[in-house]
Design a protein around this nucleic acid. Sequence first.
DNA 1: AGATACACGTGATGC
DNA 2: TGCATCACGTGTATC
Lengths: 235, 235
Amino acid sequence: MDDIDVLCNDYWENMILQTEQLGRNFDESFSFYDSSSPDGAQSSAASKNIESERKRRKKLTETLHALRAVVPNISKMDKASIIKDAIGYIQELHNQERMIQAEISELESKRRIFPDFDQEISYNSKPKRSRFEQTCDSSESRSSPIEVLEFSVSHMGEKTIVVSLTCSKRTDTMVKICEVFESLNLKIITANIIAFSDRLLKTLFLEANEEEKDVKIKIQTAIAALNDPDCPMSK
Amino acid sequence: MDDIDVLCNDYWENMILQTEQLGRNFDESFSFYDSSSPDGAQSSAASKNIESERKRRKKLTETLHALRAVVPNISKMDKASIIKDAIGYIQELHNQERMIQAEISELESKRRIFPDFDQEISYNSKPKRSRFEQTCDSSESRSSPIEVLEFSVSHMGEKTIVVSLTCSKRTDTMVKICEVFESLNLKIITANIIAFSDRLLKTLFLEANEEEKDVKIKIQTAIAALNDPDCPMSK
DNA sequence: AGATACACGTGATGC
DNA sequence: TGCATCACGTGTATC
């Protein structure tokens, strides 16, 4: 490790001297392309620029070495590889921190008063409308109603109902869809919404303690009611 | 931002053509130092070398950009500054991890030994919150705020930003999440929400015309504002 | 022997 | 105006 460093430094120090001499020779013998001003001012400026650039390169290189120093498990001494390893390391640290945060929050939540967390309390208490849904209901529901393009309810196995619903995506459609389904008191196992292009696809897995047609009608009614409270059920 | 990038690309594309021509002229008129073999093989090899070097530079540059992408709070776009900030950020992560790790072990040990003092410990020694939990600070202010458990913003390829957010599922959380993201005017390519058990996972693919940290801060601010409109996020 | 990686000098560009 | 940064083409050493 250190050996390599010393080796590299020695190598490049020698190389710098070497090429510097070569450069000077090149400048002396090949300065013809500087046809406009062969005086010393140009040379001085160029020399300044050269040295400045040399400083910059050196600084960047040693900064990179410093980066390499704080990153463990460096695979290759490559410049690009060093940066890549640094990126991977940072992401790894991110993951660690995320997991640690999760652990902390879990620890903290465990000391919360009640260990009884399930029971679907959220669905018992009727969701009282907050200021947001109220404004949605009144102002925007008629401007952009939920346009259902596909709707199916089917059984999967014995105890599971799969609900699939596709509608066109407009302003606040996602909010409304979520709102509808949260208001239905369904026994949701898992729910999934995908927005892509101008479509919204919602997939629900429900516990099958309700009749299939009941679920379908329930959802249809809720959507129709949201679209136009005066006119129940179209289709 | 896009303007700058486009500008730079155009600029450097032109420069590449320009200097390439210059290089060819140089080779044609000044190939005398190639006294041994004035054939085309040398030219081909040189051309290969040029293009290879070009590739290497490009790769290194974009690797550096990738590094910049995973490091928040970049002061200057400087190459050296990017690396310096990355170093500082890694060290900062090291410190955070060390402190958090210490706190975890402290919590666990005290929890084992003095289970009665849990309450006291939890609210006294509070770790310096990282960006992950900034939105959780006001989690107890309202009845069912959005409790963020995991939150990441990362790049995928060059033009895509991936946003991943996990929060605990409570009453109307789904509605609120959708509400927040619909109010942000993000360039959404595709969005996905999964509800499972007591968790909500939202994944977004965005068009990368906004800075990464801006997106993150935007979302954080919106969530914090929704959680507690009275106290809209310092920092 | 061919690919790879490096530092070099150089001109252009923006502040 | 200088000063800093950049990408370029080039020669050389290493693998």
